[in-house]
């Protein structure tokens, strides 16, 4: 495995002023588009972006208005990792050097339909950075449950009613599933902590081979939140301990943020339309699940 190098930090001051993703039709306050915009500014001009069906491809590629200022392509829904791997292999075979291939796929495109191809890509150690922007449901098709939709969430396929309180399963443990491939570099991030996110992208940029970043990206349309609170709510999720910031590198887990105490889960949930129906027992279930997870992470990753 390639060793992750000690590389200079990127920040708002030293990042390029060039934009590679603009003029798109994303909803106001779209967290996914923030993730794509920031990542591409770090990755730079010599980038091939591959995006499966999903919000970012739907809003970015409507002929003749193309929103990517660098090379980009919509992939098959289940095949974003393999198409990106093909791009990397083709460009390498043609003798191209100093470029990066990146996938931007949603939670459904990653944890559900695209998972087989992603697992294959990591197994082959293809030279691709795979970024999953996680807005916790199939938002492009109108807010349906995915494998990363958290417990309790009301979606259009998990309605909250008399019999079922919305989504009855917890999020798949995507980060650890990816790490279990013994990938060279994997990380979790949130657009609520952009500095952390861009530096993880920068780290992955410098690794030759398969890398993965799971970035939490809010969705006002699907979450029922005001558009101006997108970054704040993505930060709240981390502060409430429902999303954690971590890395997997050289076979070791690293917890990047280990708060002494968490902010209120109830407050985080009640800000969002998708969780409004949740009972005290449901909220307790979310908290218990969080605590179990943190106990394990603190025990093993610190």
């Amino acid at each position: 495995m390639t060793k992750v190098l000690d590389i200079p930090k990127v920040n708002a001051k030293n990042m390029t002023e060039k934009e590679f993703f603009y003029g798109h039709k994303a909803c106001a306050g779209c967290g996914g588009s923030i993730a794509v915009r920031l990542a591409l500014k770090v990755l730079g001009e010599r980038t091939y972006s591959a995006l499966p069906a999903g919000c970012m491809s739907a809003v970015g590629f409507i002929y003749p208005q193309m929103a990517f200022n660098s090379n980009a392509i919509i992939t098959t829904f289940p095949g974003s990792a393999s198409m990106a791997a093909g791009i990397a292999a083709g460009a390498k075979a043609l003798g191209q050097k100093d470029f990066k291939t990146v996938v931007f796929a949603g939670d459904g495109g990653t944890a559900d339909i695209g998972f087989q191809a992603l697992s294959g890509m990591i197994d082959r150690n293809d030279d691709v950075l795979y970024i999953c922007y996680d807005n916790e449901a199939y938002m492009n098709t109108g807010i349906q449950k995915s494998g990363l939709t958290p417990y309790g969430t009301k979606t259009t396929t998990t309605p909250a009613g008399q019999n079922i309180p919305g989504t009855i399963t917890h999020k798949k443990n995507l980060f650890e599933i990816i790490a279990a491939h013994d990938i060279a570099y994997a990380a979790t991030a949130s657009i609520g902590y952009p500095q952390d996110f861009i530096n993880k992208v920068n780290k992955a940029k410098h690794v030759k081979g398969a890398t993965f970043i799971h970035v939490y990206a809010s969705c006002p349309t699907g979450w029922g939140t005001p558009t101006e609170t997108s970054v704040e709510i993505a930060k709240d999720a981390v502060d409430a301990g429902l999303i954690f910031l971590a890395e997997y590198e050289d076979g070791e887990y690293k917890l990047n943020r280990n708060p002494k105490e968490f902010k209120s889960v109830e407050e985080y949930l009640k800000k969002q339309g998708r969780f409004k129906h949740m009972s005290d027992a449901d909220i307790q279930c979310v908290i218990e699940n969080r605590d179990k997870k943190w106990e394990r992470m603190r025990k093993n990753w610190l």
């Binding site: 098959t76 289940p78 095949g79 393999s82 990106a84 093909g86 292999a89 087989q116 294959g120």
Partner: peptide, 10 residues
Amino acid sequence: HSAISATMGA
């Protein structure tokens, strides 16, 4: 599915 996706990418 990945075979055809990869060849398209290349």
